[in-house]
Design a protein around this nucleic acid. Structure first.
Length: 594
RNA sequence: GCCCCAGUGGAGCAGCCAGGAGUGCUCAUCUCCCUGUCAAGGAGAAGGUCGCCAGUUCAAGUCUGGUCUGGGGCGCCA
């Protein structure tokens, strides 16, 4: 039907007769001559209908409208001097049309298919097939394919076997809320869609697969964010006879290959941070390492403080920390007030700001500070004259970290501390391994210890003895990859010892009977010579979003859902017929207060 | 569950703080003109119960309350 793709034509094709198929991108009607930009998957090319050369085409060409699907025959011509278009890859040539066939007409599109307008996301999703015609979305999907393709090549070359695992599986009460599927053949019972293939991949290790990977959809029924969809794609990996360094090395090599092949960036070795160091320096376990502005601990300088707000930071478990905004001492009061509001919205009681000047400190709390503190505070915060210090104090250190960490990430970009860099520039990509996570975290509401990673995560040998006596001191064999402030991957060396696994479940407050009911199949499998094993699961959507420079994973998913987990295109979720409910042994309760 | 932002002809915005006739801008649509444009240009036209429901007021796009939808975040996400 066609001889070339529109966007591929170059001056080397000059004189060639071509047949092109594509969509009318724009139309410029000059009366005796009409130009259209014809668009296909490869790009745009200008087609000329010149009615003195091809008078037969006049009627059809005048009838062309945006997004008509057409076939054009013609000849590739070099454009005359002064009429070339540098903005187009095909801008040195054009196609002089000799025939025009309208393959299908288009209604007036609900929005313009171009890169120049930001359209309401709801509308984009409702007409996603039009939204996806845009260059940005086409290149995002192509980039996604290139990344996944490179990932598969890597694991294929390293002895991994891709194995599929069930989509209809068993609910796991731990962790996120499950999506449930009623079982027609088992009245009252439900399958769950997998939150991840975690248990299956461990079983594959027991089965002797040795090295497994899978690019797999996972499902979590939790509230959405810019980096979270109810169904999302993971690169799931598991390896036998490995320790942490083996998994880290293979995974890091994979990322290096993908970045080299797809983005042309030769990555340096990943930085490594312990969880404790990351929290102390950046207030988060997913730090953006593209700029400084690290958190500083002011508790030393404020030992003797009389100021009540700062005293909160000296309480057991509390903290008083600061970030310094370089040369922002003159920030307008209105903007500072906005920062204070932001801190409060993030859970801080307030935000103390201090502008450092040559002649001293300027701050609403200046009068509460002693002479020593006037001298020591800027020094402890590493601030110089002209800087603005932002201080948060709270009885809970995690509040201080969360607030300052979050403000740091936002302000870093807002203040232009993150330089624009080319994709191929290794400096654009600040990968880091975060290691030595605590195993447990305290669920204050339930008054219980819960797993930070998951219940099958290994424990470092030197902290395993704290399992029963001091769970807060237990460190896990878990590791994360972070990139530019995003968590990209999470994994661990697993427990392969049945006795230890049972001790861990006991520490989580899960009884033997309960454990047997929930994960008995895994514990049973561990009775049959399980190999030491471990793995990792990078998020494909996040990897692609970062690589594409998007700040939302919806931009790299063909058919994503809205924040309320709905799909405006298909109308999902939707009610079902009474017949269907009947077959599933389900009766609906009217919605209402419970 | 909570906080913040947004909703105005088909699309994107302004108008709202400080109430006075649906006012304006860019694009799209329709008609006409135009042979070198390229997000073409020129002339004209059509198109809106200002998300929805209440309230305040002589008068509401504008003020108040509620609600729905979309987006960002907190909680949640082993």
């Amino acid at each position: 039907m066609r001889s070339h793709r529109c966007g591929d034509l170059r001056t080397t094709d000059e004189g060639a007769p071509v047949a092109l198929c594509g969509w009318v991108h724009t139309r410029r009607d000059h009366g005796g001559v009409i130009f259209i930009d014809l668009r296909d998957v490869a790009g745009l090319v200008q087609v000329v209908f010149n009615f003195s050369e091809a008078p037969a085409l006049q009627g059809a060409a005048e009838g062309l409208r945006s997004e008509f699907c057409v076939r054009v025959e013609g000849e590739v011509r070099r454009r005359k001097e002064g009429t070339t278009n540098e903005a187009l890859a095909t801008g040195e040539i054009e196609v002089a049309a000799t025939s025009l066939e309208v393959l299908s007409v288009s209604a007036t599109p609900p929005f313009q298919v171009d890169e120049h307008h930001d359209v309401e996301e709801m509308l984009r999703l409702k007409y996603r097939y039009l939204d996806l015609r845009r260059t940005r979305m086409q290149s995002n999907l192509q980039l996604r394919h290139a990344i996944v393709s490179s990932i598969r090549r890597f694991y294929d070359a390293h002895g991994f076997t891709e194995v599929e695992t069930p989509m209809l599986t068993r609910a796991t009460p731990e962790g996120a809320r499950d999506y449930l599927v009623p079982a027609r053949l088992h009245p009252g019972s439900f399958y769950a869609l997998p939150q991840s293939p975690q248990l299956f991949k461990q079983l594959l290790m027991v089965a002797g697969l040795d090295r497994y990977y899978q690019i797999v959809r996972c499902f979590r029924d939790e509230d959405l964010r810019a980096d979270r969809q109810p169904d999302f794609t993971q690169l799931d990996v598991e390896m036998s006879f490995v320790d942490r360094e083996d998994v880290l090395a293979v995974t890091e090599a994979m990322f290096k290959q993908v970045w080299a092949e797809v983005l042309g960036a030769e990555l340096q070795d990943f930085v490594r941070l312990t969880f404790a160091e990351s929290m102390a320096r950046f207030g988060t376990d997913k730090p953006d390492l593209r700029f400084g502005m690290e958190l500083t601990d002011l508790s030393g300088a404020l030992q003797q403080t009389e100021f009540r707000v700062f005293q909160a930071g000296k309480e057991e478990g509390g903290a008083v920390k600061a970030i310094v905004l370089g040369s922002q001492g003159g920030m307008p009061r209105k903007q500072i007030d906005a920062l204070v509001e932001e801190a409060k919205a993030l859970g801080a009681g307030g935000l103390v700001w201090i502008a450092v000047a040559d002649e001293g400190l300027r701050s609403p709390v200046e009068k509460f500070l002693s002479e020593d503190e006037h001298r020591e505070l800027p020094r402890a915060a590493a601030a110089k004259a002209g800087d603005l210090i932002l201080i948060v104090a709270d009885g809970h250190a995690e509040v201080v970290d969360r607030v300052l960490g979050s403000m740091r990430n936002r302000l870093g970009k807002h203040l232009g501390l993150v330089p624009e860099r080319a994709r191929a520039d290794p400096e654009a990509w600040k990968f880091a391994w975060i290691v030595d996570f605590p195993w447990f975290e305290r669920d204050e509401a339930a008054g219980a210890w819960t797993a930070i990673h998951h219940p099958f995560t290994g424990i470092t040998p030197d902290t395993v003895d704290y399992l029963e006596s001091a769970p807060e001191k237990v460190l896990s064999k878990a590791y994360d990859i972070t990139l530019n402030g995003w968590e990209l991957a999470s994994g661990s060396i697993r427990i392969h010892d049945r006795a230890l696994q049972e001790r861990v479940l006991a520490a989580l407050g899960i009884s033997k009977e309960e454990a047997q009911a929930r994960f008995g199949f895994l514990l049973d499998a561990f009775a049959f010579g399980p190999p030491p094993h471990g793995g990792i699961a990078p998020g494909i959507d996040r990897i692609v979003a970062l690589a594409a420079g998007e700040d939302n994973i919806r931009e790299v998913i063909a058919f994503p859902k809205t924040q309320s987990a709905a799909d405006p295109l298909t109308g999902a979720p939707a009610p079902v017929d009474a017949d269907q409910l009947e077959a599933l042994h389900l009766a609906l309760k009217p919605p209402g207060p419970t």
